[in-house]
Every structure is written in structure tokens, then in C-alpha cells.
Design a protein around this nucleic acid. Sequence first.
DNA 1: TACCAGGAGAAAA
DNA 2: TTTTCTCATGGT
Length: 231
Amino acid sequence: MGPDALRGVYSALLATFGPQQWWPAETRFEVMVGAILTQNTAWTNVEQALARLRARIPLSAEAILALDAAALADALRPSGYFNIKALRLRAFCTAYLEAGGFSALAERGTPALRTWLLSINGVGPETADDILLYAFDRPVFVVDAYTRRIFTRLGLLAGGGAPDEGLSGKKMGYESIRQAFEQALGPDVALFKEYHALIVFQGKRVCRQRPLCGQCGLRGSCAAAAVSSQP
DNA sequence: TACCAGGAGAAAA
DNA sequence: TTTTCTCATGGT
């Protein structure tokens, strides 16, 4: 997976969809909360949950932990998996405060910070990397289901299957994909932020059109079409 | 009605 | 070690 190919895809997506200016949050802490709530969930549902939570408490680790467990789960209901996400959010807030909050965590190196995040119950590789990139401005490339599918269909990742196989085809490991992107693109926080946002924006443009694109496996105006339309 | 949406962890094979 | 199951609401 060479840098020219990856930068070519990025240029095509940017030219087609424009800058996305991500992450959609007002504070760094809200980025972290949103990263947990958006696990396997559409962002529109996460926004509803965040609005319900903000209506009850100020969005801080202390306030979340002070909120009754049942009330927290109820606030998170629109995001789905609300019981599990309430537990995960509380686990994160506890670890966050024990670590000394944002300022103390920001002093850690990226590998140490990533290890800390992954040690928290409910924070896996993608959630950790979302937080590292968008809350801590670390040069970590976020690999999600859309990344896997688009770049597999474009022939830039090994593995994968038929275009209609969905997001659960044969996969390269998360770490190997992440490292491949980071090595090819170099440590560029702004590029990583915008690139991931464009991939997700493309993935969210679900127009319920069938069949799926034969090149990238997505519906509607797809990444492969965007790339192939470039000179 | 059925399917899908920016995962993660536990249990089973 | 790898695969499967569970968690759950909202939009189309």
C-alpha cells in the first residue's frame, strides 16, 4: 500500500466531498464520550444521547460518575446498548480521573497513552485511536469498518470478498492496517483527521441504493467512483 | 418487517 | 487461537 495510492484516494475524496472539519464535538472530553457512544452505532443516535446527557448534567467525568447508574443508562438510551455503554462510560471516567485528567494524560507519550486507553474496559483499538487522534491530536490513523471495506475493494488491502459481503469479510489485522496507513502517509495529524472523516462521511452516505458499488462495496456515490473520476 | 449503523468483550469451538 | 454470540435503539 504505497503513499501515492493513499494520497490519491484522499485527494479524490476531498475533491468530491470537501473538508469535513471533524470531530463533531465542543470539547475534547466530549470527543472521548462520543467515541465510546458511537461504538457500532450511527452518529445521529449518539447526538440524541449526548443531548439527553447534557440536559441532565454538565459533560464532565465528575458529573457522569455522580449521576445515578440507572439515570445514566436512561440518558444514553438513544445510542443503543445503553446498559453496556453506561458501564463503559463510567469505567472510562473513573480511569480518566485516576490518571489526573486531560492535562496529566497529555504529558504521556503516544504509545503509553494508547496502552492506557486499551487497558480500560470498553475501549478497544478503534475507540482508543479515535480518542488519540481527535482528543489528543496524536498522529494515529483510525481504522474502522468503512476503511477496511473501501480499501479492500480498491485493492489496496489484502483480504475481503464479494462486493455484497458486507463489512465482515476476511480481514487484515487492525494493527497491520493502521501501521500500513501511518507508514505510507507519515505522521500528519491534520491529514489523518480529515482522511478518516472523509471515509466515514462516504460511508454514511447511505442512499439505500442497490446493488452496492462493485468497486468499493458501498452504496450511492462511492469512494471508488470518486477516485476513478479523477484525472 | 427487515436490515443496517463509525465495536468490544465474553463465551464457545 | 479463532469464531460466534451478546448487547439495543432509531432510521429507512
